[in-house]
Nucleic acid binder design. Structure first.
Length: 570
RNA sequence: CGGGGUGUAGCGCAGUCUGGUAGCGCAUCUGCUUUGGGAGCAGAGGGUCGGGAGUUCGAAUCUCUCCACCCCGACCA
């Protein structure tokens, strides 16, 4: 490809709205253009990358036995009403009406549609198992779209749905997808990790997320360096502290802590460790007030909290509700005099003695508080906090580390949730009607492009993994308009490399060298060869890999052979 | 949904407080020079200052209103 016949629109400065490295670089390199909040055009250069990712995903899905189809992006409301998700899905779903005032949505996902297809066409166990997939544009009306295509509203996703006759079959399908995902991300050249994930509101038996590891990732992952344990922080269990609770050694005392509303402030004022303090979080669920206790240095895990019976749908209490229930403003609330209130203690709080908490009197806290003596033992003890670095690993092998990741894939064993709701049944060997066991498997295709950049860039620009680079090699002639020999050599090399099956980008703009170098580095073409009069006189060209510190000369005579070997994987 | 911020040329910004005929850098176009790391000089084009209403002799600037975009946020123990 000659640049003059392609479209490369790079810029030196990124629009002010971009924060993340990948977002800035995608805009600067001209991969994407923003049309509106969370809406992006894939420019020709970006589209080449997107298509490469897509191709690898498709190949591995096919290889794993999945069958491609394509469902409509716009879906009738009826299907969603049938599954109950028309109401449940909430404002994330973009709802639209047609000219007859009939309700539709722009599909945020396709469980309903695929279930509808399956129930119409799958009648016998002989047709199972089957796994359908598509690579489709989805729309989710995110509260806050950001980071470019990383969290866009319109995005490209590969979603697959498996149907099996039995739980064991579902496990097979699930395992096959898990393996395919590992292959896909390996082929993409990304550093990733599969982690156990919460099965959340969808229900179902097991679930794994695939994360591309990057400090800028939105998700926290807990993993154990000493074992293969890895879980989304939402799921990672915080074990109860080992050993017996220490006996009380101090008397309960009320101390003045005016203006000190946070555990940090109180601990600083009293000169005690933060781990000695207890914070009380006021929650309301089903119109009932609850006080949830966490150690001062811990943070609430809302997913875990919502698994407690009665707290399935909770919210934080308003200041008015707190005052009404405890007769005290937030900042000084605590469990001791809150006898009429349901108290839920985190495991680590239940194991504390001589702790400090709010006194339910504005400007006062209590010190030396002890369970059983100063207040009743907690009615309910649960794991409701996020694990922190150094917590013991739930599998008992060492301690946890925390890293950040970008969720690019998710495999999910759904079971019969949708087959029940949508009546997806088939006849088994005995002629009996049975519910299909379903699984669903997503990959954020467009997000992968951004994630790959997060993981592979430097101060000059993108450094694509070979597998998804928009071009394999850039040919840069210096003095293109001045030297016939340079021009001729450049075109010959371009043609030969192209004939050898490589995607070649020839910079025939007759630009100054600095401009061409800077553009190639920004765009991130993994290899480049420079042709100049100087070198040609000595019969050499210059080769440089994108990440390499400097160029090395190669002989003009054997240039093609040499470049072929450098370009071929491994 | 709440709070904050921004909207001026394709991009990055100044000008707004203190009203008086719209500016800088990059990019674009023309010419000459230059040619191995985002060139130099000379010239040129491009903006109903987010939209609407109002105040005023006069509004990018003041007032009201609407819109778009960005950031932060459930609180906190």
């Amino acid at each position: 490809m000659r640049i003059s016949q392609f479209f490369v629109a790079t810029s030196r400065e990124a629009p002010a709205e971009a924060e993340l490295a990948s977002h800035k670089l995608m805009l600067r390199a001209g991969l994407i253009k923003k049309l509106g909040a969370g809406l992006y055009t894939w420019m020709p250069l970006g589209l080449r990358v997107l298509r490469k990712v897509e191709a690898i995903v498709r190949e591995e899905m096919d290889r794993a036995g999945a069958i491609e189809l394509q469902m409509p992006a716009v879906q009738p409301a009826e299907l969603w009403q049938e599954s109950g998700r028309w109401e449940k899905f909430g404002p994330q779903m973009l709802r639209i009406k047609d000219r007859h005032e009939r309700d539709f949505c722009f599909g945020p996902t396709h469980e309903e549609v695929i279930s509808d297809i399956a129930r119409r066409d799958i009648k016998s166990y002989r047709q199972l198992p089957v796994n359908f997939y598509q690579i489709q544009t989805k729309f989710r009306d995110e509260i806050r779209p950001r980071f470019g295509v990383m969290r866009a509203r319109e995005f490209l996703m590969k979603d697959a749905y498996s149907f099996d006759a039995s739980k064991a079959g579902l496990q097979n399908s699930y395992d096959a997808m898990y393996a395919a995902y590992a292959k896909i991300f390996t082929r993409l050249g990304l550093r990733f990790r599969a982690v156990s994930a919460d099965t959340g509101a969808i229900g179902g038996s097991s679930s794994h997320e695939f994360h591309v590891l990057a400090d800028s990732g939105e998700d926290a992952i807990a993993f154990c360096p000493a074992s293969d344990y890895a879980a989304n922080i939402e799921l990672a269990e915080a074990l109860a502290p080992a050993g017996e609770r220490k006996p009380a050694s101090a008397a309960m005392q009320q101390v003045a802590t005016p203006g000190k509303k946070t555990c940090e402030d109180v601990a600083a004022l009293l000169q005690i460790p933060l781990t000695q303090t207890v914070k009380a979080i006021a929650l309301v669920a089903n119109d009932k007030f609850h006080l949830l206790l966490l150690r001062g240095d811990h943070s609430l895990n809302e997913v875990k909290a919502s698994k407690i019976a009665g707290l399935e749908v909770f919210r934080f209490a308003t200041e008015q509700e707190i005052v009404a229930a405890l007769d005290c403003e937030p900042g000084y609330i605590g469990p001791v005099t809150a006898r009429a209130v349901d108290v839920i203690a985190d495991r680590s709080v239940a194991a504390m003695s001589d702790f400090v908490c709010g006194a339910n009197q504005p400007g006062y806290h209590l010190t030396g508080v002890n369970w059983g003596r100063d207040l009743p033992e907690p009615k309910l003890i649960a794991d409701v906090r996020n694990v922190v670095e150094g917590d013991p690993s739930p599998d008992g092998k060492g301690s946890l580390s925390i890293c950040r990741g970008i969720e690019v894939g998710h495999v999910f064993a759904l079971g019969t949730k949708y087959s029940e709701a949508m009546n997806v049944v088939f006849l088994d060997e005995a002629g009996k009607s049975r519910l299909a066991e379903m699984g669903c498997y997503g990959i954020g295709v467009s997000r992968i492009v951004a994630a790959a950049i997060e993981q592979n860039h430097d101060d000059k620009g993108i450094n694509w993994p070979q597998a998804i680079a928009p071009f394999d090699i850039a040919v840069i002639p210096i003095g293109y308009g001045r030297s016939e020999e340079v021009k001729r050599t450049a075109h010959r090399l371009h043609d030969e490399l192209t004939a050898a099956g490589f995607a070649v980008l020839l910079d025939d703009r007759d630009e100054r060298p600095g401009v061409m170098f800077a553009d190639q580095e920004l765009i991130g073409v993994p290899h480049r060869v420079v042709i100049g009069e100087r070198g040609l006189k000595q019969g050499t060209l210059e080769y440089q890999a994108r990440g390499a510190a400097q160029a090395s000369p190669i002989g003009l005579q054997n240039a093609l052979t040499e470049l072929k070997s450098r370009l071929s994987p491994r």
